[in-house]
Simulated assay, not measured.
Amino acid sequence: MFKRSGTGNYAYMSARVKAKTSKLLKEEDYNKMLMMSVPEISHYISEAGYSKEMNDLGSRHEGIELLEYATYMNMSKQFRSILESANGELKSMISAYLTKWDFENLKVVLRGRNYGLPPDKIREDLVIAGSLKEDDIERIMSAPSIEDVMAIFKTKTGLSVSDEALRLYKEENVLTRIEDELTIGYYKGVLDSITGKDRATNIFRTYIKYVIDLKNIETIMKFKMENVDGALAADFFIPGGAQLNDKIFAQANAAPTIEAAFNELQSLKVFEELKTLLSQTPNISLLVLTMERFRLKLAIQVSHMYPLSVIPVVVYMIMKEDEVKKIRTVAHGINSGLDRDTIKNLLVI
C-alpha cells in the first residue's frame, strides 16, 4: 500500500493525472502525422482532445497559426485545471513548478518588445498556466518601462532581478542577465516549496536538483560550442543542484576544449550516459534536444515509484508539454518542406 506524501488530495490528483496521461499521443500518432498536411494534422489533433480549442479559435485563425494557438491554449487549460483541483502542500509544489511559465511568458513579451512585434504575435507563444493571468500579461505588454514590467512581475510571482540586470537591458538591450537571474530565482522557489521529509517528496526534491545539474551542464556545453570565455561563467551558474557545484562548474568552463570539459564532470552520476549523448551532439540546437530527451527520461523513471505524491502530477505536465512541442515540430517541419526523417529526428520520442 502506498503512503501519501504530505498534505493534499493526492489520491484524487493521482487518479486525474493517470487518466490524462493515458490520453496523451503515442509514437504511432506522430508517425501518422508525419504523413499528413498541416490541415490534416489540425483535424487529427481535434479528434485527439484539442477540438474545443480548434473550434473556438477557428473563426479567427487558420493553418499553422491556428494549430499553435490551439495547442498552447489546450495546455494552459490543462495545467490551470490541475492547479485549481489540488490543495495543501501538493498545490504549493505544483504552483511553484508552474511558475516556469510566468518566466517563459516574460521572456516572450520582452523579446517581442525588443523586436517590435505586434501584441497578437506575442500572444501566440504565451502559455497562461502560472501566477500571471491574461490581464497581468496585458498589463506587462503595455507597461511603459522595464521597471514597470518587473514591478508587475514581482508582485505576481515574487521573482525580481538586480539593478544591474535592468541597466544592461535598458542601455545595451541585453536580456540574458534578466533571464539568468530569474532562472536562479525560479529553481530556488521550486526547491523552497518542497518542504516534506518523506521519501516520495525527497525523491521529487532530488529530481529537481538533478534537473538543475542538467541545466548547468547544458550551459557548460553551450559555452564550449560558442567559445565563450570561461571566466564569464560564474553569473550563469544555478545553485542547488545534486552534485554539480560552483567549483566543478568553473573548472569545466575553464577547460580548453569540450573533451576536457567532459573530464571535469566525471564525478557526476549522470556522466557516463551524458558523455555518450553529448559527444555526438554537433550543434547547440541538438544539444538542447539531447538534454530535453534526458530530462524527460529521468522524469519518467521516477513517475511510477510513488503514485500518491507530486511526482506523477509533474511528470504528466512534462509529458503534456512534450506532446505540444512534438505537434508543433511536426506541423512546422511539414509547413517548411522538411523531409520526414529530419522532422522525426527533431522529436523527443
Score class of each variant (00 low, 15 high):
S267D: 02
G116Y: 02
V109L: 02
T157V: 02
K170L: 09
D229A: 01
G6E: 02
D102T: 12
L346N: 10
G6T: 13
I41C: 00
P256S: 11
S279G: 06
L66Y: 02
I41L: 06
M150V: 03
G230L: 12
G240P: 09
F271L: 09
M33G: 04
A19I: 14
E28Y: 15
I208K: 05
K52E: 10
K133E: 07
L191D: 04
G196S: 14
K344P: 01
L182T: 09
L191S: 00
I94R: 03
I178E: 00
A260P: 08
R295L: 00
E134M: 13
R177A: 09
L126Y: 08
F237C: 11
K320A: 01
D198T: 08
N335M: 07
S59T: 13
A96E: 08
A233Q: 12
I343H: 05
A86F: 12
Y187R: 00
R16P: 07
L298V: 08
Y12C: 03
F79I: 07
K26V: 08
Q301K: 13
L308T: 13
T99G: 10
I318S: 01
V348F: 03
L244W: 00
E179I: 03
G63R: 01
V211Q: 00
A11Y: 09
T342V: 11
R139L: 06
R177P: 11
V109E: 02
T71Y: 05
R293A: 09
E147S: 09
S162Y: 04
M150S: 00
S160A: 12
E272G: 05
S336Y: 05
N253W: 03
E104T: 13
N114G: 10
V228W: 12
E171A: 06
L117K: 13
I94E: 00
E323L: 00
I45R: 06
G112L: 11
R80I: 10
Q280K: 14
